[in-house]
Write a protein that binds this DNA or RNA. Structure first.
Length: 422
RNA sequence: GGAGAAGUGGCAGAGUGGUCGAAUGCACUGGUCUUGAAAACCAGCGUACUGAGAGGUACCGGGGGUUCGAAUCCCUCCUUCUCCGCCA
């Protein structure tokens, strides 16, 4: 959520930056400002009324103390009108606040300066391409490789749960575990504290990171206890810092965590969701940083470099995209996507997304820090996948296939306990 | 799941209807003193909205109610603790 104070101060600049998303938000912005004006006006009136009635109440107390019962009762009569006014104004205030919030919830984060203008993925900017397309003597897609080597059984998952819930087995399961451990060890070596959060969250947490109230359809919901299955570890980990006031020298806070992730992915079908490309349940190691506003873009680069280091270690051919305004997520100010080349599918697969949310999440979370001047200010939050497993597994399987079997990347061998999948 | 107790500022802990946004202690920050430190002493020390400012308003687990007035009374939800039951 954007800060109404910022919208007020830099209205035109924000409208301009938002326009990079390919949509004109000036109307909503104006609406927000008008609603905030009326909110202020109502609050001012309400405060006056309350102030008067507080004064009267106090004097009634004093009169009682002095045993001036009659005078006190006279004063009581005066409050009836004020009471009615404060009830009316109180309701009006609540309404104004809710309306303002509704409008603010509809406004996405305003893109950072380097973000290119554009409506969709066609306008994303390729920042970097690393490595080369592997030349394969055979090129089976990963779903065929999974079957051939008995690594992942998609049908079995359908039987147990439904489509999008694969069963990993044998070397397939071990490869999963190896990747998770290796990712976590790398993150720890890079200074991230490992977190094992709950994978079910309450409503307040969903609101804190912006999944609620709008995107509940994308999460699995357990109505009996009103809990949601997390779509990413970002949700529970970032919510650790909900309603928290940090000290300035706490920065940077670096957390990582492995969790399964659950996404309903309502509405996606077809070739794009074949095999591991899109799942309802998958594993991911997430990295999260809280940073001082002046350093968050530096940190975004650092996190992007970190994720790229993982891809390089795995020997994968990848590219880095700077997402254009229209393709940048609702809450993000700037996002890099890392895409790995899938040799058999002959397409790029998104394996990581690293974003700077600036104060957009922190505002909802009420995540602040006390600056050296003693003032509380919103912190910046960033996160990224490091990494999501399914597409990494797909790329490793496809790109490393040989007639003799699938060659396990060297860095994973100590974790897997085998060199080749055959 | 059953029975009981409790939730107050960073922590501890007073406060059971009226000058309580809240005593006191610890912690923290600044100052005096000191070559420096400690001790002692003095001062400051929650959050948010609003106002040019003085100030005003709200917040004592969350929500609702009673009252002229609620940290204090009532209802409800949540959480924690103790005992019992069940159980990885």
């Amino acid at each position: 959520m954007l800060l109404i104070q910022n919208i007020r101060q830099e209205k035109e600049a924000i409208i301009q930056r938002l326009a990079k998303r390919g949509v004109d938000f000036s109307e909503l912005i104006n609406q927000a400002l008008e609603l905030d004006d009326s909110r202020k006006e109502i609050q001012g009136k309400l405060d006056d009324v309350l102030s008067q009635s507080n004064k009267i109440s106090k004097s009634i107390g004093q009169l009682f103390a002095q045993k001036k019962i009659e005078e006190a009762n006279e004063m009581k009569a005066k409050t009836a009108d004020l009471k009615e006014q404060s009830a009316t104004l109180g309701e009006a205030l609540k309404k104004a606040e809710n309306e303002l919030q509704d409008v603010l919830y509809q406004i996405p984060n305003s893109p950072g300066n380097p973000v290119p203008e554009g409506k969709n993925e066609e306008h994303n900017k390729t920042v970097k391409v690393v490595g080369e397309k592997p030349i394969l003597t055979q090129s089976l897609p990963h779903w065929e490789l999974c079957e051939k080597y008995n690594l992942i059984d998609f049908e079995l998952g359908v039987k147990i749960t439904g489509a999008g819930f694969p069963v990993y087995r044998g070397k397939g399961a071990r490869l999963q575990r190896a990747l998770i451990n290796w990712f976590l060890d790398k993150a720890r070596n890079a200074g991230y504290e490992e977190i094992q959060p709950p994978i079910l969250i309450n409503e307040a947490s969903g609101i804190g990171t912006g999944q609620l109230p709008d995107k509940e359809g994308q999460m699995y919901h357990m109505p009996v206890d009103n809990l949601y299955a997390i779509p990413t570890a970002e949700v529970p980990i970032t919510n650790i810092y909900r309603d928290v006031i940090l000290k300035e020298d706490d920065f940077p806070i670096k957390n990582c965590g492995y969790t399964p992730c659950f996404r309903r992915e309502a509405g996606s079908y077809g070739k794009d969701v074949r095999g591991l490309n899109r799942l309802h349940q998958f594993d991911k190691v997430e990295i999260v940083q809280l940073q001082h506003p002046e350093k968050s873009y530096e940190t975004l680069e650092e996190m992007s470099d970190y994720v790229q280091g993982l891809l390089q270690d795995l020997g994968l051919h990848y590219r880095v995209l700077l997402l254009c305004g229209g393709d940048t997520g609702f809450a993000s100010a700037m996002t890099y996507d890392m895409e790995v080349w899938s040799a058999a599918q002959e397409r790029w697969l998104e394996v990581s997304s690293v974003s700077n949310f600036e104060t957009f999440q922190a505002n909802r979370l009420k995540l602040r820090y006390k600056s050296t001047t003693g003032k509380n200010q919103l912190a910046h939050t960033l996160n990224g996948s490091a990494l999501a497993l399914p597409r990494i597994v797909a790329s490793i399987l496809e790109n490393n296939q040989t007639p003799e079997g699938i060659i396990v990347p060297e860095v994973l061998r100590p974790y897997c306990g085998f060199d080749v999948i055959d």
